[in-house]
C-alpha cells in the first residue's frame, strides 16, 4: 500500500483486467473491500488538528463526510505473495454515487461466471401449466359426459 492509491479511472481499468485475468485462467478469486478512510489512516499532514474525544464515539458524527477506501486484490498471499495484485483507490464522499455506478458495471461485466437468469425454467413451467389446464379441462369434460 506504500505505493499509494490509484485514481478512480485507473483503478476501474485495472480492476477490469484483474477480472479478465481470472476469467482467462478460469480459476481464482477477486477480493473487493470497502471501508471508511478514517483520519488515522491519513498521513499526519492531513490531520493537523488532533481529534478531541468530546464524545465516547466521536466517529459516529464526524463534522464532515469522510472518504471511502476501496481495495481489490487477487487473494494471493503467503508463498504466492509475489503474484499478488493489490489495487486501491480513495473515493471522496461526493464522488461516491458516480463511482459505484461505474464500479457496478465493471463488476457485472467481470463476474461472468455466475449463473445467468434462467428463463428456460419459466418457459417450461408455463408449458406445464398449459398442459395441466388442458388435461384438467379434459377430465371435467369426461365427468360431464
Amino acid at each position: 500500500m506504500a505505493t499509494g492509491h490509484l485514481s478512480t479511472d485507473e483503478f476501474l481499468i485495472r480492476l477490469a483486467t484483474l477480472f479478465e485475468s481470472r476469467r482467462s485462467v478460469n480459476h481464482g478469486s477477486v477480493f473487493l473491500t470497502q471501508k471508511r478512510l478514517s483520519p488515522h489512516d491519513l498521513p499526519k499532514a492531513a490531520t493537523d488538528t488532533p481529534l478531541p474525544p468530546s464524545s465516547p464515539f466521536p466517529d459516529l458524527h464526524p463534522p464532515h463526510p469522510l472518504p471511502i477506501l476501496i481495495r481489490a486484490t487477487n487473494g494471493k498471499s503467503k508463498d504466492k505473495r509475489k503474484d499478488k495484485i493489490k489495487l486501491s483507490t480513495v473515493i471522496q464522499a461526493d464522488e461516491l454515487e458516480g463511482f459505484f455506478m461505474r464500479y457496478a458495471d465493471v463488476c457485472k461485466a467481470g463476474m461472468s461466471g455466475l449463473k445467468k437468469r434462467d428463463r428456460s425454467g419459466r418457459k417450461a413451467k408455463g408449458k406445464a401449466k398449459k398442459k395441466k389446464g388442458a388435461s384438467g379441462g379434459g377430465v371435467e369434460g369426461e365427468k360431464k359426459g
Binding site: E97, M101, A104, C107, L114
Partner: peptide, 20 residues
C-alpha cells in the same frame, strides 16, 4: 448474476453510511 447489480448498488448506499 442477476443479483450483482443490486448488491453493488446496496454497497454504494452502505458506502454513504460509511462516509457519514
Amino acid at each position: 448474476a442477476a443479483e450483482v447489480g443490486r448488491l453493488i448498488a446496496a454497497l454504494g448506499s452502505c458506502g454513504r453510511v460509511m462516509a457519514a
